[in-house]
Amino acid sequence: MLNLAQPDPTQHPPRSVRTRLGGFCHLPRLLDKARAFAAGKNGGYHYNCPLDRNFFDFTGIDHEALLAEVKKGGSDTEILTWVRAHTSRSKAEIHAWTEWLDQHGPGGVGGHEWIAETVKAAAGDRDDIRSFADLLDLDDYVSYGGKG
């Protein structure tokens, strides 16, 4: 049975980057990866990857501090309360950052080429993959048996 309180990315992907918690996109995915990392079941997913660091840079939260909080076993709501207590970001700033991250894509030729090659391998006929969030959703789906 699937237990979302104890994510196991060796069995199913973490939540989408687009899933929001307290207005923050990516936070639910970050928590899934942190919980899996703490349990030694992170599979191919990496806690404190570049996308995670976008969250940490934006909020000013240290990744080790969040991981320590996650290891206490709190719910998403409890950890959201902790996050809010450890960042000075306003609701408007969180909203703007979330919209940016949801649409953020590669800025240079190398990044565009990498996304193009990744999409070509997973779903060559797709022409709607433009952001990193789009790419991660596609990759998660295909990695667990979906057809792109």
Rank of each mutant, 00 (worst) to 15 (best):
M1P: 13
L2M: 08
N3S: 09
L4F: 14
A5K: 14
A5F: 08
P7W: 03
D8M: 11
T10F: 15
P13V: 11
P14D: 05
P14W: 10
R15C: 01
R15H: 12
S16R: 15
S16N: 08
V17P: 00
R18L: 15
T19I: 07
R20E: 15
R20A: 13
G23H: 10
F24Y: 15
F24I: 02
F24L: 07
C25T: 13
L27W: 02
L27D: 09
L27R: 05
R29W: 05
R29T: 01
L30A: 10
L31H: 09
K33L: 07
A34F: 01
A36H: 08
F37V: 00
A38L: 04
A38Q: 05
A38H: 06
A39P: 03
A39G: 01
G40N: 05
G43T: 07
G43E: 07
H46K: 13
Y47F: 12
C49Q: 06
C49D: 15
P50H: 12
D52T: 13
N54E: 14
D57W: 02
T59E: 10
G60W: 07
G60A: 08
G60D: 07
I61W: 04
H63C: 10
A65G: 01
L66M: 11
L67S: 04
E69C: 13
E69P: 03
K72A: 04
G74W: 01
T77N: 09
I79S: 03
I79G: 03
L80G: 11
L80P: 11
L80Y: 13
T81D: 14
W82A: 01
V83F: 05
A85D: 14
H86I: 03
H86A: 06
H86E: 06
T87G: 08
T87E: 10
R89Y: 11
E93T: 02
E93G: 07
H95S: 12
A96V: 15
W97D: 03
W97C: 06
E99F: 06
W100K: 14
L101Q: 05
Q103I: 02
H104S: 06
H104K: 12
G105D: 04
P106M: 09
P106F: 12
G107V: 06
G110F: 10
G110N: 08
G111F: 01
G111Y: 01
E113T: 10
W114C: 00
E117P: 00
T118F: 00
T118N: 06
K120M: 11
K120T: 10
A121M: 01
A121N: 07
A123N: 10
G124A: 14
G124N: 13
D125L: 05
R126A: 13
R126K: 12
I129A: 05
I129Q: 08
R130W: 03
R130F: 10
R130S: 11
F132C: 07
F132Y: 15
L135F: 13
L136G: 03
D137C: 08
D137M: 09
L138N: 04
D140S: 13
D140L: 01
Y141I: 05
V142F: 12
V142P: 05
S143P: 04
S143M: 15
S143G: 14
G146S: 12
G146C: 13
K147Y: 04
